[in-house]
Design a binder for these strands. Sequence first.
DNA 1: GTGAAAGCGCTAACAT
DNA 2: ATGTTAGCGCTTTCAC
Lengths: 346, 346
Amino acid sequence: MIFHSSTALPTEAEKYLSIGVESMSITIKDVAAKAGVSVATVSRVINSKGYISDQTNQKVKAAMIELNYKPNIAARTLQGKSTATIGIIVPSLENPLYSELFECIEKELYKRHFQTLLCTSNNQIQKEKNYLSLLEANRVEGIISSSHSKVLEEYKETALPIISFDRKISSKIPTVRGDNYAGGKMIALEIVKRHKKNVLILSGSKEDLSPGNDRIKGITQVLKEKRISFTTAALPFERAPIVKKELAKKAINMDTFDAIICTDDLTALIVCDLTKKLTTPPLVTGYDGSSFIRAYHPELVTIEQPIQEISELLVELLVQKVEHPLIELEAEYVLAVKLVGKSEFN
Amino acid sequence: MIFHSSTALPTEAEKYLSIGVESMSITIKDVAAKAGVSVATVSRVINSKGYISDQTNQKVKAAMIELNYKPNIAARTLQGKSTATIGIIVPSLENPLYSELFECIEKELYKRHFQTLLCTSNNQIQKEKNYLSLLEANRVEGIISSSHSKVLEEYKETALPIISFDRKISSKIPTVRGDNYAGGKMIALEIVKRHKKNVLILSGSKEDLSPGNDRIKGITQVLKEKRISFTTAALPFERAPIVKKELAKKAINMDTFDAIICTDDLTALIVCDLTKKLTTPPLVTGYDGSSFIRAYHPELVTIEQPIQEISELLVELLVQKVEHPLIELEAEYVLAVKLVGKSEFN
DNA sequence: GTGAAAGCGCTAACAT
DNA sequence: ATGTTAGCGCTTTCAC
């Protein structure tokens, strides 16, 4: 591992070893030698498989501990064992929605003795493709992805089980998501309830599969029905906060709004900050309702996605698919969302 | 991978294959067969090593693409190649300090063509131990850890290169951190500058190696020097926000404070929320100054740790240690911090 | 109850 | 310029 292979004669390795750099991995052979048994026996102990006498068992275990032996996962993977690894692809952890999603998924997988391989794409298409490839090369058992719309083809080519969060990748790949359309409607109804008359809708960038689109549909549907006038402006939501702030400023100054609807919480926080000094600050609403936002900005009116349940379902479905590849799953699993935040006036 | 090994006869596999479940991995042999060359040649193409005619190169690459072939990382690891994987251990991603630290480290490693294996310990000692073991079993090249103090022994036993963030694990393991003592002093000096007279210090749990301890030292040093009276209360900072809120309430009500010093930003946000309705809200200070906090709570007086630089240094040092195991590094790398936030009054 | 040996996918001599 | 083959660490028949 450490020696440049060009010169890695065994003697060379031994030389280093003798001066105390004990970095050559301990293998099953070393354990077998120390315990005075065969590698097969050690393997049996590791996997608690087949018959082993108590005495041998003890000896081997002692040897493993003494040598601080860790079975080489690569080797067992190679000979056909599962890697017990699940890949997770998210755009970024800056948004608490995703860091919480990851944490929940990781906890769920940990319980089930899977390890997780997290990949953050940072909204870079090439990076996401590279990571997807990497997950395949690592022989993960399956993937949970919150994919970028421009990487769909690569997902479709994969033979691996995939479950998607919030975005429809293909009809073959199940999606788990909050009910964006209903969430949009809830927001709009709250606007109505509070007698707002002039609404600004700050949507994220209008990428094809963006979950924001359904939210906007729900919102505008209700606003139109109730004949409330609204303006829409797009705000590239993956940009740095400072950029978004400047863009938001412009949009806000277009007119005097008494409500500003944002399609995610972080944008909402920026807008809140921008408008709170106004004599009559508008109602600002967000979307996602991560527990971070709920804890540290409890007053923000937003839609709470059930991240915990979403995560559990994502994992449950993926594990099912991993264990029973031929299983038929629904195309979409839509979970209920709810309005939260300061319930009275603004 | 998919077949329960007990019944996974080749014929069984082939049967499944023929009905279209093409989940058995494509190997270098398949590629070689399709391209009409030997496995060695394919290997050469994969690694761009040795002589290969243009024509063969083409053929092989075409075959790889057609079969959607991904080299099996386990196999190449097994025969001695580096896994090119670095393990990262952090307590949790809920705190933006850690999610940003991870993102920065990941970007840095990605540039250098390393993959990262993230492990979140959730402050559970056993979980951290398990993950440490897992990283070894996965044969990662090295580890960046923000360790719990009760897992030190396990770290010391590891032969892997380790760099620690913010906590001194042992004299053998280099630590990279912000200057906590200086940061503490800066906070206290700000308190002095603003003529605060009665200070509450909310420290995190007093775990042995907590970076908070040095911060407290810096703070109290200055306060004592300037003869400003202060009270200290401990607040288990890894608890859920709601719990912390209740505990903070109690502490705050002990007296009437005109300044409350918190040893992390999240606690500070809670305290801000708790005190902002008071007629004369105290000055509340935090610690960490992640870019999330800087972006969404620019007014918070806090100490900004240079997360970007810390990450770069962590990675640089680790890579050095991985490539030159015998290299001698400093025991500690202490980076300057700075006071940020609303600069005038409170 | 335990050992010997084949083989997983790949790379790196060594042949040719 | 390309093929043959041994062997990485491990599991798993198959013998004993």
